[in-house]
Computed example of a mutant assay.
Amino acid sequence: MTKRFTKERREHIHDLILERKRVTVKQLSEELDVSEVTLRTDLKEMEKEGLLTRTHGGAIMKEPTTPTGSFKKRSETNLKEKQIMLSAPSHSLKIRAVFYLMPVQRR
């Protein structure tokens, strides 16, 4: 196998994690013909960049989040306030007012 530059190797690791959802250092070492020490360094740096979550012996795909947190978490916060805003009569809103509402999950 042709040796890759660090950036190329990390992009390949990221692609594998997206595809498989999880990888082990041992698997990566065998597939990429790179030492486990090098791969641990790669995974550590990739975790710092927010690309994955390291686990004992490997890594898993990072849960998608937005700048304000995961959708599940945001959808469960301030439920009462969101419901009050949704129940307000539309004629009481100013014409040029803009509201950004997150979907409320009904139970």
Rank of each mutant, 00 (worst) to 15 (best):
K3D: 13
T2H: 09
S90F: 06
T2S: 13
E36S: 14
E63I: 12
K7D: 14
M1H: 12
I60P: 00
G57C: 01
R9L: 04
L101M: 15
R96M: 07
S35N: 02
R107D: 12
H56F: 14
T66Q: 03
K3W: 06
R40P: 01
R107S: 11
L86Q: 15
T53H: 03
T65S: 15
E76C: 05
I60F: 00
H91F: 14
T55Q: 07
E76A: 11
T2Q: 13
T65R: 14
R74N: 14
I13S: 07
S92M: 11
L28Y: 07
K48Y: 06
L28V: 10
L93M: 09
K7Y: 08
E19D: 14
Q83E: 15
L39T: 04
T65M: 10
L52H: 08
E19N: 10
T65D: 08
M1T: 06
L32T: 10
E31R: 03
L51Y: 02
I95N: 08
T55C: 02
E49Q: 15
V34Q: 06
F99I: 13
L43H: 05
V37K: 15
Q105T: 11
T55G: 01
K62A: 15
K26V: 12
K62S: 10
M102G: 04
D15W: 03
T53W: 00
V98F: 08
P89E: 08
V34F: 02
E11S: 08
M102E: 13
I60D: 04
P89Y: 04
T68W: 11
V25H: 03
E47M: 11
G58K: 06
S29W: 05
P89M: 03
M102Q: 08
S75Y: 02
Y100F: 13
K73H: 14
M102K: 07
R40G: 15
F5N: 09
M85K: 08
R9A: 03
Y100L: 14
I84A: 10
M1R: 11
M61K: 14
E45M: 10
Y100E: 07
G50P: 11
M1F: 08
K48T: 09
M102P: 00
L16C: 08
P89W: 02
G57Y: 01
I95Y: 08
D42H: 03
L43Y: 06
K21M: 04
H14L: 12
T6I: 10
L52S: 05
K73C: 03
I84T: 10
L51V: 00
F5T: 12
H91A: 08
R20Y: 05
G57H: 01
H91V: 12
E47K: 12
D42E: 02
I60M: 05
M102W: 04
F71D: 04
F71E: 06
L28Q: 07
G57P: 01
V98C: 06
E36V: 01
V34R: 13
I17N: 09
E49P: 00
E30N: 13
T2L: 13
L39G: 04
T55F: 00
D42N: 02
E76R: 15
P67Y: 09
R40S: 02
T41G: 11
K7R: 14
M102I: 15
K80A: 14
T66L: 14
M102T: 11
R4N: 05
P89K: 12
I95E: 13
D42I: 02
H56P: 01
L28A: 10
H12E: 13
